[in-house]
Simulated assay, not measured.
Amino acid sequence: MTAPHIRGRGTATNRSGRFEKFDTVRCDDGWDIDEDIPPLRTDVRDEFARSLITYNRSPDLPFDRSINPYRGCEHGCVYCFARPTHAYLGLSPGLDFETRLIARPNASEVLRGELSAKGYKVAPIALGTNTDPYQPIEKTRSITRDCLSVLQEFNHPIGIVTKGTLIERDLDILAPMAHQGLVRVGISLTTLDAGLSRRMEPRAPSPQRRLAVIRRLTDAGVPVRVMTSPIIPGLTDHELEHLLEAGRDAGADAASWIMLRLPREVSTLWQEWLETNEPARAEKIMSKLREMHGGRDYDPRWGHRMRGQGEYAELIAKRFKLAVKRFDLAVKLPPLRCDLFARPAQIGDQLSLL
C-alpha cells in the first residue's frame, strides 16, 4: 500500500529516525469517510550554535570545511541525501525534514569569531553542502546573507551550492567577491521536465527558473557550475547531455555529476515515492542502482558512493566526459584565492606602527 500524496511535500510519511524506540505511521482508521489531509505548515525553531564551521576528511569532496545556516530543507527533494541527519535531532528524515526546520540566528556572529581566531588557516568554505542555504525561509531570516557579509569582510573564499532563486538577492555581495576570485556557485539541475521536477522537488524552483538564475549570476560576473545531480538511472539519465547544454547556454562554464545516493532512510522514502509516482519504472530504477552498489541500495564507501561502479556507471562517466568536451565546459577550475584573506581590525586591537 502506497502512502497518500501530500501536496507540496516530497514524502508522505513521517517514520521515526533510526535512533528512536517507537515508530509512528499513518494508517486507515476504518471509517468509510473521505478525508482531506490538511496542509502541513512549516515550523522553524532557533538553535544557537556554539560552532559553525564543520571540517571533513572525505577524499570524495573538493573541500575540507563547510557551514550550514539551517537544518532541514523546505525544498522537500525526496532524494536528498541529507535527510538522515534529521534523525540526530530526534526527528523524522521524512516529513519532519521538510517541515520542522532549525535556523541558526547567531551563525554570522559565531563565524566571525572562528575566522578571527589566531590559529585559523584559510581554505575555501562550502556553503549549502547539507541543506540549501537559499531555501524559502532565508527570505525572512537572512542568515545566509549575514554569513556572506562576514566572509566578504574577511575576503574569505567560498563555494555555494543551491537550487534557490534567493541567491540573486545577494549579487551585491557575490559579484564583487567573484571579481576578486573569491566565489563560485553551483546550481543543481536534475531534470528539464517541469512536471517531474515538481513531483521530486516540490518546493524548489522550476528547471527553467534555475537556468534563469545561472544567466543572472553569470551576467553579473559570478562563475557558475551546472551540477547534473543526482542522475537517476531509468528516469533522468537520458537528459544528461540536454542538461549540460542548457546549463552552457545559460552561461555556466563548468559542470559536474553525481549518481543518485540512497543512504539509510532515504532508500525507503525513495522507493515509496517510486511506487506512487513511477510504478512502471520502479523495478528497473532500483535494479540499476543495486547493480552499481554490489547488490545493495547504496554503497557508502569513499570512492564509490558518489558514482557507483560497473558498466552502467562507466557509461554515464563516458557520456559526461564527451558532453563537457563538446559543450566546452570545465571539470576542474583554478583554485579560489586564499591570499586575500585578512582579519578586519577589531575594537581593542593594538595598532600597527608601520
Rank of each mutant, 00 (worst) to 15 (best):
W31L: 11
E109L: 08
D23P: 14
F341Q: 06
L243G: 04
V44L: 11
V110I: 11
Q208W: 15
I187T: 09
R65P: 08
L115N: 00
V222P: 04
K284W: 12
I214G: 03
E245R: 14
W31C: 14
K21M: 15
L111K: 01
R9D: 12
A313R: 02
P263C: 12
E278M: 13
M177K: 02
G251N: 13
G72W: 01
R343Y: 04
Q135W: 08
E138N: 11
R326N: 13
P205T: 12
S108K: 03
T13F: 09
L353F: 08
R41M: 12
D60H: 02
Q180K: 14
I37T: 12
L329A: 01
P38G: 08
R264P: 04
R210K: 11
D46H: 11
V78I: 00
A107C: 12
I214L: 09
A254F: 10
W31Q: 13
M259W: 11
D32H: 13
R307M: 06
R290I: 01
I6E: 07
T236E: 14
G310V: 06
G10P: 04
E109H: 06
R305K: 05
D170C: 14
E291K: 07
G8N: 12
M177E: 02
L240K: 10
H179C: 08
I232E: 06
Y298L: 03
W270S: 02
I125E: 04
E201T: 06
F81W: 13
A178L: 12
I37W: 10
C338M: 02
L196M: 08
R337P: 00
A107N: 08
Y55H: 15
F48R: 09
S229W: 14
P202D: 08
R145V: 03
I143T: 11
A317H: 02
I316C: 04
R225Q: 14
I167N: 10
L289V: 05
V44H: 05
P223A: 14
P233A: 09
D172G: 05
S142W: 15
P207Q: 15
P136Q: 04
T13L: 13
S188P: 05
I187P: 06
G113P: 01
D60V: 01
I143E: 10
L211S: 07
E98T: 02
C77D: 10
R169V: 11
R319D: 00
I167M: 12
